[in-house]
Write a protein that binds this DNA or RNA. Sequence first.
RNA 1: CGCGGGGUAGAGCAGCUUGGUAGCUCGUCGGGCUCAUAACCCGGAGGUCAGAGGUUCAAAUCCUCUCCCCGCAA
Length: 311
Amino acid sequence: MRILFMGTPEFAVPSLEALVAAGHEVCGVFSQPDKPVGRHQNRLQPTPVKECAITHNIPVFQPVKMRDGTALAQIQTLAPDLIVVAAYGRILPDEILACPPKGCINVHSSLLPKYRGAAPINWAVLNGDTVSGVTIMHMATELDAGDIIVQESTEIGPDETAEELYRRLSVLGAGLLVQAVSAIEAGIAQRTPQNGADATLAPMLSKELSPMDWSRTAHALHCQVRGLLPWPVASTEKLTGETIKVYRTEETGDKTQAQPGTVLAAGKHGIDVACGEGTVLRITELQAPGKKRMKAADYLLGHPIAVQSQG
RNA sequence: CGCGGGGUAGAGCAGCUUGGUAGCUCGUCGGGCUCAUAACCCGGAGGUCAGAGGUUCAAAUCCUCUCCCCGCAA
């Protein structure tokens, strides 16, 4: 099938690779415009999807605007049977959605109608969900609200981070996408409307989500730490005065009478901090300003933290 | 050349302002204590101070350039 692919970050790469590997004719790739990334703000970086497209000699298009007609004209010239969107980061106007004869489908990293929006994987982990998944659906005018073609769930491990789940779902989504495309090609694709009443939103993340409130339970904080990876990362300045990013934690299962935020222990196992409802969270990996990410035990060798008296 | 922080023993850090014996904690090795130990005591090994050049009687420290790492931005 002749397919136009739209995607931007790493998540979309396995889907693009899978379509190519499945023998579909990917006639073009849309990706977000190159942006300065990282330390060299003077240099533009291609998106992961663009880099992948180039290795397969697929023409790349990076329209700045989707609604000024040029994007539509390019699509009409490419004349795809189907448009596949995976984390493109743009809302497509109706005239584009209506363009390809087989329609537009989307790879979304949640079990829709839960977690419509930009950051479904992170929010699933932040909320302490134990199940996540991928949905392939038709695209509708309303964001992530289209009819579901196929869906597959997967368990979220108790210590799994959003970053790890992201990688797993990108692969899961790629496989499911190829199934869906085959079904569409064969004319046997399912089409199940979403129950809009069950819909929840997963908005973009921000640094405001980073600070850790030690009066929350160890479990809630553990979810916060896992869910905010790889960005913006949970942080606390209560321990040392400087802002420490917290990369990995464990729920100790211990109980304490100490005030939330009290450092109960600091040693080679990590830093144990009292949390809400008498629970205890152990920080095992962190990052100090200007430093690399390191084991909490290593950090302590050069930055002793006083264990506070419990009260 | 976007702004800022950093590179010192296997790990995490101090020392640099004011040049003059390479320091701390942990790990490691050996010995001791102990029923025993991740505990404690004694002793040892381990560093071209990121690299190159310069100033100087003398550079981890001051000057110049290069490389690498981290944060800011998403």
